[in-house]
Computed example of a mutant assay.
Amino acid sequence: MAFHEIRFPAKLSFGSVGGPERRTEIVQLTNGFEERNTPWSQSRRRYDAGLSLRSLDDIGELIAFFEARQGQLNGFRWKDWADYKSCAASATVGYEDQVIGVGDGVTRDFALSKTYASGGSAEMRGIAKPVQGTVRLGLQGDELVETVHFTVDYATGIVSFASPPAVGAQVTAGYEFDVPVRFDTDRIQVSVASFQAGEVPQVPVVEVRL
């Protein structure tokens, strides 16, 4: 599958509905207990872009974007307005937001990640689509300078140090990020009359694994 490094218009994704989903397999035992398991190591996000459309111009922009991606064929970036920062939604991105690794004196490349923690449990999510110019990196509590101390591959979420961090040195990062997605349909049905009456089309979007 090809991936286009372009973001779905942020003004159209604002107001959309969606978020993470999990797949849990539940077996009900005869004694009333349950066995629960999941084939997914991470959640997958789904959205409906149709709810954010407010004008016929918005529909025109959506159709142009849909056609350029050839429906489900090519992936693209999506801004999840509920979760697009390494920090809290109301906070400013900082270079110490997330711990992404520890130096071993050899490794230069580190993958961006975000950890979700609650009640003593935590899940780590890989971040493959950071937003250009937003990545801040820290080493042992000191902020580094992009292009001087490190570079960022904005298509993969890999940061590369000019020199490998020393053994035990904590690597931290802050950033904004997009979700890699594709349309989950090859058809968009729009009725102008219905749209003007308040009915909006369904435009499902689903996260893709990279």
Rank of each mutant, 00 (worst) to 15 (best):
F8W: 02
I59P: 06
Q42F: 11
D57M: 09
G105D: 01
Y116E: 13
R54F: 05
L12Y: 03
F150M: 07
E34C: 06
F195I: 00
V181M: 12
S43M: 12
F110T: 03
F161I: 06
H149W: 02
A122V: 06
S163R: 08
D48P: 10
E176S: 09
V200P: 02
V181Q: 09
A2W: 01
G105K: 04
F183D: 04
R69I: 08
G15I: 08
V179W: 00
A117L: 05
V205L: 06
T156M: 06
R77W: 14
R69V: 07
K129Y: 07
V27G: 10
A162M: 10
P39W: 05
T147V: 15
D97L: 07
E35K: 14
F3E: 04
D153G: 02
P204S: 01
F8D: 05
S118H: 13
S191N: 10
F195T: 01
E96K: 15
A10I: 12
D142N: 14
Y175K: 03
F76S: 07
V99I: 14
R36H: 06
S13K: 01
S86K: 11
R7L: 07
A49L: 11
I188Q: 00
G32H: 03
F66A: 00
F110C: 00
D48E: 14
A2N: 12
L12E: 08
I127D: 07
Q189T: 14
Y154M: 08
S160H: 02
G198T: 05
Y95R: 02
E96R: 11
W78G: 01
E176Q: 14
L210P: 15
V205M: 02
K11Y: 12
D186M: 08
Q140S: 15
R77K: 13
G198E: 02
S160P: 02
T30Q: 12
G168T: 10
V152A: 10
S160C: 05
Q72N: 04
Q72G: 03
S86C: 00
A64Q: 13
G101K: 08
A91D: 15
A10M: 09
R45V: 11
V200H: 09
R182G: 04
N74T: 10
F195H: 02
W81N: 12
D48S: 04
K85V: 01
V208E: 14
S118R: 13
